[in-house]
Amino acid sequence: MPAYTLKRTFVALLILIVVSGLTFSLSHLSADPALTIGGEQASEEDIQAIRKLYGFDRPIHVQYLDWLGRALSGDFGESYHYKQRVFDMVSERIGRTMLLGTLAILFALVVSIPLGTLAAMRPNSITDRIALFIAVLGQALPTFWFALMMIIVFGVWWRWLPISGHTQWANYVMPTIALGYYATPALMRLTRAGMIEVLASDYIRTARAKGLSPASVLFKHALRNAIIPVVALAAVWFGFMLGGSIVIETIFNLKGIGWLSYDALLRSDLPVVQAIVLVFASFYVVLTLLADLLNAYLDPRISVR
């Protein structure tokens, strides 16, 4: 296990370096930052001056190494538009996004694992059908529409929940459901398929032949094995939720980094965009790493390979 952890961590670091290089070069190729900073009225001399001032006249790999060196010490530069430190802008908002993403994936898991298990216990029964219906609905409804419907019903008609902001817990209820529900179908189906397969396996027959209680057979022996692929998928979905909450954060005016990235892209605010992409990429890498380690813990055969 320690050797396995070390190996996976090393691979994760490599991925991060590659991702940072890619984002840096892509964003510098897609737009001339000096033009963005100068604005429409800037003269040729102004542009040249800006290039000199920000160091855009240097070769791109020098700029990259310079940026990387400072990024490692937490300095992501200054926003072109807001003239604030990018680090402060991101760290101020990242908590909200992480809270929303965590709540959403927990919601998705809490709904999909019991639902998938229930469906697997009696395939093609009425319970299975209902679970499938709920899941298909989640897949078919566009997130923004579902979010807007919730706002109309719970926010406007019944006035149970606040419809925008991030100051109280109640602000997170609808965004969590809207974001989490989207991940539910895939997780539920994987749980169901895994459980059906595991429940038909020889070791479940052994567990029953040992006279274990139905709960022990189901939760100790079946679920642990069925859930291994679900863990990996949940990690990917968690990454999506942290990076893909742009729509939800915008609709509910919950100003996390999803909202910030949308804003920065509109303004071609490159330092902010780069920092956020790097943060999202780190989320993915760390989550995948955690999922791998959790899987190795759940299935002892994995760390041997």
Binding site: S201, D202, N225, D299, P300, R301
Partner: peptide, 18 residues
Amino acid sequence: GGSMSMIFQEPMTSLNPS
């Protein structure tokens, strides 16, 4: 598993891998 117990044909898959 208590007073009557059983041994199966498939030793490779009859134990829980986890």
